[in-house]
Design a protein around this nucleic acid. Structure first.
Length: 107
DNA sequence: CCCCTGACTAATA
DNA sequence: GTATTAGCCAGGG
């Protein structure tokens, strides 16, 4: 497993409930603000044995991956909302309040 | 070994 | 405001 994937998985596993992280955000933490694509790709390839909260990792729009979200986008939203994530009326996550910002992380 | 594709983002027109 | 382009890394053909 390459370091990139390892970092992505490790970081993703640290996402607390009620918070969400953007691909670009994670990528920035890894030192590659432009590698958001690979972060998503890593998530896609993420083994389920790691139990990564990939449903808490969303794009900048604040939505889960359309077409790739488990069970459907709305189901995901409902689940996240249940965990404490704030949503806008338009259905997008309130990144301003629900974005994961760990102080112990760099960025 | 080379080329294409892929859960994205930010900048520019 | 939306549409287009470039950049990242890894895996598959």
């Amino acid at each position: 497993m390459n370091k990139f994937y390892a970092d992505v998985y490790e970081l993703a596993a640290l996402i607390p409930e009620g918070k969400v992280a953007a691909y670009g955000q994670i990528a920035s933490m890894l030192g590659n603000p432009l590698a958001a694509r690979q972060v998503g790709y890593a998530m896609n390839a993420a083994p389920e044995n790691l139990h990564l909260p990939c449903h808490r990792v969303v794009n900048k729009k604040g939505e889960m991956l359309p077409g790739s979200a488990f069970g459907g986008v709305e189901a995901q939203k409902k689940r996240l909302k249940q965990e404490g994530v704030i949503f806008h009326d338009n259905g997008c996550i309130d990144m301003k309040k629900s974005m994961w910002r760990p102080e112990f992380t760099f960025r």
